[in-house]
Structures are given as C-alpha cells and as structure tokens.
C-alpha cells in the first residue's frame, strides 16, 4: 500500500498527512544528496585501507596507505602550501571585501554599473578567465613583463612568473583573491545597508570621528557576517581545486596533490582515498581552531 492511498482514505489526522507529504516531497532531493554524499564518504574511508584496482578486486592493506602518505615529504610540502594559500586568500578576500563594501556603501554617480562590474570576476567561469591571467603573465606578450622589465627595468630578462615554483603560489593567491573578493564584498555590503543610520547620527552628535564610528559601530555590526564569510572562505579554499589547477602546474595544494596521486601515473586510488580522509580531518581541525581561537564561540 503506498502513501498516497493512505492519505486519500482520510484515516490519518491532518498533522500526520502533512508530515507524510513533507517527507514525500523532500525524498527525491534527500535520496540524491545523501546517497551521493554520505555513502561516498564511508566508501572512501573503506577504500583508504585498500589497494584499489579499477578492474579487479581490492587488496586489504591496513594502514599502509596512510603510512606511505604520511612518510612522504611532498605530502607535508603540500600541507604547507595549502595553509599558506588558505590563510592569505582568506585575509585578502576579506580585507578587500570590507574595503570595497565601505566604498560602495557611499552614494556616487553610476554606482549601479560599478557594482555589477565588480561582480564580474565572481560570475565568470574560472576556465574563461584563467587564460587571460596566463596571458597577462606570458613572457613574450604579457603586459606584466612589459611593465616590470621594459618600463621599470626590474628584471634583466623576460620569464614566466607562473612557471616559477616560488612565485606561482603568489600569482595563484592574487588570482584567487580577485575571483573571491566580490562574494565577501556582496555579503558585507548587504549587512552594511541594514545598519540603522540613526546610530551614526547619534555618534556624530556626540562628536565621534570617522575612525571612531567605524570602530565602535561598523565593526560590531558586521562582525558576525565577517565571521561567517571567513568560515565559508576557509572551507572553500581549503578544498579549492580548479582555480589553482587550471592556472598553474606548480602549486600543489592538497586537492591537487590528491588528484595527481589518484588519477595520473600509477593511479594510486587507495592512497588518494586516504589523502582525502586526511584532508577532511585537517579541514575539521582547521575549522575547530578558527571557531575556538578566532571567533571565540
């Protein structure tokens, strides 16, 4: 007997019928999300103890995958790269986001146009902007080399900044800030617009300076929005893959490290799975640290 016929017979109270309907309506979405999120997580943990073979069976290895991953120096290198990337992009997007939001909160001509232009980096597909950035840093044609070498004479010869392992991460960080700051700006701006204007008027009457108003009114008002966008940004950028992978081959953050382990060369999917588990645990540690120490919740 299916639920619909029960409902139609009217044997159930209105409340019961409502909760059945509620479950029926959410079910398709719930099945898709949970079977493709929860199940894969457990399956991934399972796989991380095996030598995974795509065609044949898996061989049980115990903790071998974890041991070989943790003993690899390049793994620790990529943890460090990830932390640098996450910390600087989060700081950059947030600070720039606050600054731009404060500017855009003022009245000026063409503000509507300017506001939508600023959102372009966030909206455009990564793949479509990444090559423009590569062109800017292109050693032969790019404007970056033209300015720094030809005009300013900072370097003696042309080179590709994105191909330099030391410099590539900073290009990736700037690119990621460029791509991500509009989101922070948007969130903060909508909070700024909700601040009661009389607060500022009252402060002015009391003779507060612009800095005092910012520190005593604006900051407390946007504190929680900033706290949550920083949290979101930490999570997103910790898992970031496409932005970095498509821009440069030289920045191996954890996601990219895992991708190369699991899908190129000898396709070590088991090790890849254990890396994914480690990455998830690190992320949780990172978030707990942030919530406890920075937000002091």
């Amino acid at each position: 007997m299916n639920t619909v016929s029960i409902v139609n017979r009217g044997q159930l109270s209105l409340k019961q019928r409502e909760s059945i309907l509620g479950w029926v309506l959410i079910l398709p979405a719930a099945i898709i999300i949970f079977s493709l999120i929860l199940y894969p997580i457990f399956y991934n943990i399972y796989l991380s103890f095996f030598d995974v073979n795509l065609e044949g069976g898996n061989t049980y290895l115990g903790l071998d995958n974890y041991i070989s991953v943790l003993l690899d120096a390049s793994f620790w290198q990529s943890v460090l790269t990830t932390v640098i990337f996450v910390v600087f992009t989060t700081l950059g997007t947030t600070i720039l986001g606050i600054g731009v939001a404060l500017v855009m909160n003022k009245e000026f001509p063409l503000r509507g146009l300017v506001r939508s232009l600023i959102l372009l980096p966030y909206v455009a597909p990564v793949i479509s902007v990444v090559y423009s950035w590569r062109f800017i840093f292109d050693p032969v044609n790019g404007i970056f080399m033209d300015i720094t070498m030809e005009k300013l004479g900072l370097f003696t010869e042309r080179f590709n900044l994105i191909e330099q392992p030391q410099a590539a991460i900073w290009v990736a960080i700037i690119f990621s800030i460029w791509k991500g700051f509009p989101f922070s700006y948007l969130m903060i701006l909508s909070r700024l617009q909700a601040i009661d204007g009389t607060l500022y008027e009252a402060a002015e009457i009391d003779g507060a300076s612009a800095w005092q108003k910012f520190k005593r009114i604006t900051i407390p008002e946007i504190y929680f929005v900033v706290g949550s966008i920083v949290l979101l940004r930490l999570i997103w950028n910790f898992n970031k893959f496409e932005e970095i992978f498509l821009l440069t081959d030289n920045v191996r953050v954890l996601s990219i490290y895992t991708y190369f382990k699991a899908f190129t060369g000898s396709m070590e999917m088991g090790q890849g799975a254990s890396l994914a588990v480690i990455q998830f645990l690190l992320l949780i540690g990172f978030i707990l640290f942030y919530v406890k120490r920075v937000l002091k919740w």
Partner: peptide, 10 residues
Amino acid sequence: MLGGVVLLIP
C-alpha cells in the same frame, strides 16, 4: 564542507 576532490574518488 566537502571539496570536489574528497568526493571524486569514491
């Protein structure tokens, strides 16, 4: 909370 790469393998 879950990045693409974490879900990709399973």
